[in-house]
Simulated assay, not measured.
Amino acid sequence: MTLDPHPPSGTHIRLLAGHAASGHPVFEVLPARLVGSDVFELAGSPGMVLGCAAGDVLRVADDGRFDVVERGENLCIQAAGHGHFSPESFAELSKAVGDLGGMAEAPQDLRFIVVTIGRAVGLPAIEQVMDAWIAGTDGAEWWIGNGEG
């Protein structure tokens, strides 16, 4: 997995995640490395934005919309439920994906979880880990946030 959690320039980009009920845009700020005037390599996978993962190279417009210029070698797995995940559940998932060379991250309140894992691991292994983990949660779901591998 190619993931530099500390981009050298400390650059962050703002990607459009959607729109609030009020119609106002909602953005997610992610660490990135500048590779061109409006082109960035993501250094972290998003929790709300769909269509990209850490390691992808994106062309980002001023309004936060983006195009993937080059796919990286990671998948972005996103998980959410009706409430918050327990610290024990997060620790269980972190260990399971860590054993596959991946990394799980979440905000402090554990309202969602993001897993960055190499595509080379393969969907069957990833699905097995995620399905086993989600079976122990109440009403939570997971999905691949950047396509189907």
Rank of each mutant, 00 (worst) to 15 (best):
L58Q: 03
R59I: 00
R59F: 00
V60H: 04
V60P: 08
V60W: 01
A61N: 14
A61P: 14
D62P: 09
D62N: 12
D63W: 10
G64F: 07
G64H: 12
R65A: 10
R65G: 09
V68K: 06
V68I: 13
V68L: 09
V68G: 02
V69S: 04
E70Y: 12
E70G: 12
R71K: 12
G72A: 13
E73I: 10
N74W: 12
N74G: 08
N74R: 13
N74M: 11
L75T: 03
L75S: 06
L75N: 06
L75F: 06
C76R: 01
C76F: 05
I77L: 15
I77A: 11
Q78R: 13
Q78W: 06
Q78I: 10
Q78M: 12
H82Q: 05
H82I: 01
G83Y: 00
G83Q: 01
G83D: 04
F85T: 01
S86W: 02
E88H: 11
E88C: 03
S89Q: 15
S89D: 14
A91E: 04
A91S: 07
A91T: 09
E92R: 14
E92D: 13
E92Q: 14
L93C: 05
K95S: 13
K95E: 11
A96M: 10
V97M: 06
V97A: 04
D99C: 07
D99W: 07
L100I: 05
L100D: 00
L100G: 00
L100P: 00
G101I: 08
G102N: 01
G102K: 01
G102F: 07
M103D: 08
M103Y: 03
A104W: 07
A106F: 03
A106K: 01
A106N: 06
P107H: 02
Q108C: 02
Q108Y: 04
Q108A: 11
D109F: 07
D109P: 02
D109L: 08
F112Q: 03
I113C: 14
V114A: 08
V114N: 04
V114G: 06
V114Y: 00
G118R: 04
G118Y: 09
R119Q: 15
R119N: 09
R119I: 10
G122L: 11
G122R: 08
G122A: 10
L123G: 08
P124K: 14
P124T: 11
I126Y: 01
I126D: 00
Q128E: 12
V129D: 00
V129M: 01
M130P: 01
M130E: 00
D131P: 00
D131M: 08
W133G: 03
I134W: 00
A135L: 12
G136I: 12
T137E: 14
T137I: 05
D138R: 15
D138A: 14
A140T: 09
A140V: 03
A140C: 15
A140R: 01
E141F: 13
E141I: 15
W142A: 05
W143Y: 12
W143E: 13
W143Q: 08
I144V: 15
I144P: 04
G145T: 13
G145F: 02
